[in-house]
Each structure stands twice: as structure tokens, then as C-alpha cells.
Nucleic acid binder design. Structure first.
Length: 647
RNA sequence: GCGCCCGUAGCUCAGUUGGAUAGAGCGUCUGGCUACGAACCAGAAGGUCGGGUGUUCGAAUCACUCCGGGCGCACCA
């Protein structure tokens, strides 16, 4: 609603300036920090001052006098040195809110957006770094969908890479287990934890016995050729771990549409198609001399104007690098490869939604059309910026400049461990590491906080709290509530930081349920819900707001500044989401939700709604509560946070 | 060496892309539960926005420079 109003004011000024002064300048509309300055402020007069060679103050006064009435605006005022402050007609605004009238977002029709996130190597348990990726990706998807975009969620599975190979080495060479034995192990709970340890053990073994690194090469070859027990082990491990990851992420409410796998990229020869295109356009060259002799490389000039080395795309032994495969995959995402995967259903979520996985064999029909997006977001941590740039350069070199521009690296900083966190985990740090502000998570070293461990701790803490507050409630119900609170805390914690802030993970902060946290926001929503529920428990039917509240009644109540401010804030949910989409910053929505909850909590304390004796006022307060509840639940929904029945 | 990012209250972070008197949470101190349940609310203390120069009506935000920290720059992913 606020969005509509903002646009209307902007357009009114824009056309007035065009007609009156013949100027076609972009009109800026701000939301003043101080509520005394009204609901909107325009610094337009400052922009015009130079062009018209007059004082901003004079221009502002002139505009205010001449622009005429603007729908929904009660008054225009000149303030400071030339700001134009806009005051809303409060009653009309509230009446419009009550009437519904939320605009349906006008997203580009037909445009399909692809968001790729999670992308965890399927060789070990997920850790907190992966959680940040998934929380950001999933929330961004929810934001886009809320604004009306059609979004496809992909989770790329590198099931043929070095990381999987290393765990296979662990099973085959170190533990001497057969595929059957590993299959049995994979059926047990927490197979991903087992692999977490085995992966660290194998890495250490390579370090202690460098001569055994050849095992890795042997395993990689077998996996790539897709033959023999090593390849079979690779499938057993990767398939089982993917299921573990899906389970872990489902705990956060995260679902995927499709899982494209590297094994199919190889078997369906996606790379061959991409390679043909790259050679035909001269995007890659066969190096005949120097250190890259025998390799196909992309010239540094394609992706950098500094003195980078050329990038090897095909190794001298004929195998393709990760970047090469990623170029092929990126081409497929835009529908530019001329090939497609086959798909089979992997699992159907409780929501009824099915996630599909790529297959190299023809499958029965029924799969939706995947890929072929017009805009692609790759949620990958910032350390891979260089590689992402090379991939985009590959698209450009093929002449797909528009797609290269719509190939967006949705980068975020890493999650690291604070020194205190390392101490809690019993991790011994070198003297050098102790002096650092934080320590990087390392799957290879087994250094990190596993996602499920963290979630378990959160659930346990929340459950203890719920039990102490609600001794008489059924236990199954309390478990559900505890889990919703735990996930609310976790998702909020991961989302409250802007993307380019390094999170130095700390248990105390992550496990907090007070202050700027998910549970704080949930609590505000629960309170609003409680008021409305209590009303019905008293045997009252909720008032027909549309019948009882007209613009004049609203205006009377909203003359009180605190009412107006909290209502105004609650009406800005769409503004907050749109801004967050524009800046690609889920943290802005988290911040908005928190501020909204704060505003409501304050309102809640100042006014006791159910005991209000003035009937008109009581109806108004109830409407405010209902409106707030809707807005907050919608906003929390975009953050992937549920509102518990009670807290 | 080259490139990217960061430096804001004791701590952890926001700051609507250049706007009005720089804001939250935690922590500290003070006060508030027989209410729609305090996972809450009210108040206080706490700032040279790393330093400097510049750009202009106006800078935490832009440019240059210095200091401090992080991350990249493989025939690994």
C-alpha cells in the first residue's frame, strides 16, 4: 500500500516538473527519519536549484503552491532549506488498508528466474557455512516469489569430484569396505557424520603418506569412467549424502525443484557441446608451448584487464576442469546448450511438491521443463568470485553478452569460527590462529559446526523453555513449537547479517532467543494472535471492521501519533520486500521484521486492548492488531520463519 | 606483486546507494509482572563513523592517499 502511495507522489511531482519547468529529471522520494517530517520527503528543490539558479527554499515553496491536490495527500510543507515534506491523509490511508487493495506484484510475465543454491559436495555432513548459503538462497527465492517472479530452485550436485573421491578412498583403501558394506552403513542414521570423520581422516592420511595420493587419481578416473567398485562406491556415498542434506535443509523448510548432477553432465556429454561452441568462436585456444603446453586455455584478457594468468579449461591429459563444466552448466541454465538432462522424481515433500534429479537414461514423461531461464542467480560464497567471473567471460566469448549480464553471482562472505567457539568445541589452535579474529571452517580438516548438531542444540534449548512455560500442553505439540522457535532463531541469525559481513560464529549469539532474534519477532506475532484468540474464547465474534470503521473514525484514532506510526510501519511490508529484492539483501527484510515487532510490542504494552471500554476505540485497536498480525506473518513467511501456536 | 571486501558505541552489527539531530541488539546501571503470559516494556550512560586530503548546498556513504584486518589470483572445487 505504501508503495502505491510513494509511486503516486513521485509521478505527480515528475509530471508537474515536466509541465511547469520543462524538466525531465528523476524525482527522488525519501522516507524521513524523523516522524515529525511527515511520511515522505522530496529533495527535488535541491536538484532544481542549480538548473533554475534560484534558492531551493523558494523553488520548494513554488512547487508546493502550484502542484495542486495529489490523491491521498493531506498537506505539503517546505522544511529546512528546501525539503518538501508530504503528509498523508491518515483516515483515507487506513481505510484503503482495510479495504484490502494490496497490489498484485507486476513481475515480468513469462520471465523465469533460476536460483541455484546449497550446492554442497555430497561427501560429508552439512555445516554452518552451508546453512548460510541455503538460508540466503531460500529466502531470496521467497522474496522473488513474493514479488511475483516465477522461480526455479536448483541445487547442483558435484557427485564426481575430488571430495567424493576422497571419501571413497577412505572406504576402499583405508577401511577396505565393499560397496555392499558401505551401502549397509549408508542406511543407518547420520551416515553423513560418519563420512565427515572419514573425510578428515583420509585428508590427514594423504598428508602423512603423500605417496598414497595416487589413490585419489585412480578413484577419480574410475568415477569418471563410471566403472568398477570405486565408481559404485562413489554413487553409494553421494546418493546417500544427498538424502542427508535434503533432510537437513528440510528441517529449515527448504525445498528444491531440481538437482542437476555432475555425473550426468559428463555422461550426456554436456561438455562436448560447450567445447564445440567455445572452439568455434575462438574462445579457447590450444596452447603449444610454455607451462600450459597441451592445454586448452581461455585468455586472461577475456575475464580480466590486469595481469592474471590464462585460465586452463581442458587439462593436458584431456580432462575438463571445473570451470569448463560450469560453463556448460551455465549455458544449459539459459537454454543455450542445445541439450537437456533426463529427469526422475527423487522425493515428494509433505507439501506435495516433488524434487527431481537428473538422469542419464530416458525416463517416463512427467517432469516439468527445467532450465532455460532468462536470469540466473548463483548463490556461492565470495571466495569463488574469480571463477564466477571466468564463467561469465565464457558466455561473453560465445557472444551471449546479455546472458552474461544476467548471470549473477549472489555472493556472500564466509562463516568462520570465533576463537571462543573454537575453545568450546575443544579445537586446539596454533598460536598464529589464536591471534586471528576468526578461523575458517574446513571440511577437509573436520573443523566446523555441523548443521544438525546446531539445530539439535537449538531445539533442545527451545524445548526446555517451552516445557517450563507450558507444563500442561501435550508433548508432541510442544516439540513442534520448540522446533519452530529453533528454526526461527537459526534462520534469523543467518539472515540478519548483510551478505558481505563475515559471520564469526558464536554459540552464545546463535543460541540467543532474546533481543534482535527470530523468537523475538515470533513472539510479537504470537501476542497479536493471542489477543484475537482470547476474544473468541470470551465468546465474542470479531467485529466486522469494514462495517464499523470508516475513514473518519480511522482519522480520529490515528490522530494519536503512536497509533499512526505503528500502522504506517506495518503497511510498509511490500516496500521493504521490494527494496530488499532490488538490493539483493535479505537482511533488510529481517531488519524490517524486527522493527515491526518492536513497534507492536511497544503498542501492546501501552494499550490493553481487550479491556478497552470505549467501543469504537476497541474495534480500532482490534483492527490494528489483526492488520499487524497479517503483515508480520507474511514478512516472517518470506524469511521462512513460522509463527508457533504459542510460545 | 595484482584484484576484491571490511574498519561505525565495551562487544556484535544496521545505516533506504549523497540528505535533516549517526541507529539497533547484547552487556552495564535504574524502574516495571495479580493484565491480551516479562522470549516483553520504559529510562540512563556509552561515538574524532580507522587517520588525512579532496569533490559540493550537504559525506559514515563518492575520489585520492596512508594505517590496520580478511579473502582471492592451480592442469583443486
Amino acid at each position: 500500500m505504501f508503495l502505491q502511495f510513494e509511486r503516486r507522489v513521485q509521478q505527480a511531482f515528475q509530471s508537474h516538473l515536466a509541465i511547469r519547468y520543462g524538466l525531465d529529471v528523476p524525482v527522488l522520494v525519501e522516507q524521513p527519519k524523523q516522524p515529525e517530517f511527515g511520511e515522505l520527503a522530496l529533495p527535488a528543490a535541491f536538484q532544481l536549484a542549480k538548473l533554475l539558479k534560484q534558492s531551493p527554499k523558494k523553488i520548494a515553496a513554488e512547487i508546493c503552491a502550484e502542484i495542486g491536490p495529489v490523491a491521498g495527500v493531506r498537506a505539503l510543507e517546505v522544511a529546512g532549506n528546501g525539503y518538501i515534506n508530504v503528509r498523508l491523509d491518515r483516515g483515507a490511508y487506513a481505510a484503503a488498508l482495510l479495504a484490502g487493495g494490496e497490489e498484485t506484484p507486476a513481475a515480468a510475465a513469462g520471465e523465469k528466474v533460476i536460483v541455484e543454491h546449497t550446492n554442497i559436495n555430497p561427501n560429508k555432513a552439512a555445516h554452518i557455512g552451508h546453512l548460510r548459503n541455503t538460508a540466503l538462497g531460500d529466502t531470496f527465492v521467497r522474496m522473488l516469489r513474493a514479488r511475483g517472479f516465477r522461480v526455479e530452485v536448483q541445487n547442483y550436485i558435484d557427485n564426481t569430484g575430488v571430495q567424493v573421491a576422497d571419501v571413497v578412498v577412505g572406504f576402499h583403501f583405508l577401511e577396505q569396505k565393499s560397496p555392499e558394506e558401505v551401502r549397509e552403513l549408508a542406511g543407518r542414521p547420520r551416515f553423513d557424520y560418519y563420512c565427515w570423520d572419514l573425510y578428515a581422516r583420509t585428508s590427514q592420511h594423504f598428508k602423512d603418506h603423500p605417496e598414497t595420493v595416487k589413490w585419489r587419481a585412480e578413484t577419480l578416473h574410475a568415477i569418471e569412467a563410471n566403472e568398477g567398485p570405486l565408481a559404485e562406491l562413489g554413487h553409494v556415498v553421494a546418493d546417500a549424502i544427498v538424502e542427508c542434506h535434503l533432510d537437513t535443509m528440510l528441517r529449515l523448510g527448504v525445498e528444491y525443484d531440481v538437482l542437476p548432477r555432475e555425473s550426468e553432465i559428463l555422461q550426456l556429454e554436456f561438455w562436448a557441446s560447450a567445447f564445440t561452441q567455445l572452439r568455434a568462436r575462438g574462445a579457447v585456444h590450444l596452447e603449444t608451448a610454455g607451462k600450459n603446453a597441451g592445454c586448452w586455455v581461455m585468455r586472461a584478457a577475456a575475464f580480466s584487464d590486469s595481469t592474471e594468468d590464462d585460465k586452463v579449461i581442458v587439462r593436458s591429459n584431456g580432462t575438463v576442469t571445473y570451470v569448463g563444466k560450469d560453463i556448460a552448466y551455465q549455458l544449459w541454465k539459459f537454454g543455450l546448450l542445445g541439450k537437456d538432462f533426463y529427469y526422475r522424481p527423487l522425493r515428494t515433500y509433505a507439501s506435495g511438491h516433488t524434487v527431481w534429479v537428473s538422469s542419464s537414461e530416458p525416463q517416463p514423461p512427467g517432469a516439468p521443463a527445467f532450465g532455460g531461464g532468462s536470469r540466473v542467480y548463483n548463490v556461492i560464497d565470495v571466495r569463488q568470485s574469480f571463477l564466477q567471473e571466468v564463467v561469465a567471460a565464457g558466455l561473453r566469448a560465445l557472444g551471449y553478452t546479455e546472458q552474461a549480464e544476467r548471470s549473477i553471482h549472489f555472493a556472500y562472505e564466509m562463516v568462520a569460527l570465533s576463537p571462543r567457539c573454537c575453545a568450546e568445541l575443544g579445537i586446539a589452535l596454533s598460536e598464529e590462529d589464536q591471534r586471528r579474529p576468526y578461523v575458517e571452517v574446513s571440511g577437509r580438516k573436520g573443523l566446523g559446526v555441523k548443521a544438525d548438531d546446531l539445530i539439535d542444540r537449538l531445539v533442545e534449548d527451545a524445548y526446555a523453555e517451552v516445557v517450563s512455560r507450558h507444563p500442561d500442553r501435550p508433548d508432541a505439540e510442544r516439540r513442534t513449537v520448540a522446533s519452530q522457535i529453533a528454526i526461527g532463531a537459526l534462520r534469523y541469525f543467518l539472515l540478519k547479517f548483510t551478505r558481505n559481513t563475515v559471520i564469526a560464529f558464536d554459540f552464545q549469539e546463535a543460541l540467543s532467543f532474546e533481543g534482535e532474534t527470530g523468537p523475538y519477532v515470533q513472539y510479537a506475532a504470537v501476542r497479536a494472535r493471542n489477543i484475537l484468540r482470547k476474544l473468541e474464547e470470551r465468546g465474542e465474534t470479531p467485529p466486522d471492521f469494514a462495517q464499523e470503521l470508516d475513514a473518519a473514525a480511522m482519522a480520529r484514532q490515528l490522530a494519536a501519533e503512536d497509533f499512526w506510526q505503528v500502522l504506517l510501519a506495518a503497511s510498509k511490508a511490500d516496500t521493504a520486500v521490494e527494496r530488499a529484492v532490488a538490493s539483493g539483501e535479505p537482511a533488510h527484510i529481517a531488519k524490517y521484521a524486527f522493527q515491526l515487532a518492536q513497534g507492536f510490542n511497544n503498542f501492546y504494552h501501552q494499550h490493553h486492548i481487550l479491556t478497552e471500554e470505549d467501543r469504537g476505540r476497541r474495534v480500532f485497536l482490534l483492527w490494528m492488531t489483526a492488520f499487524f498480525r497479517n503483515q508480520l506473518e507474511r514478512t516472517l513467511g518470506i524469511l521462512g520463519i513460522q509463527v508457533p501456536e504459542y510460545m
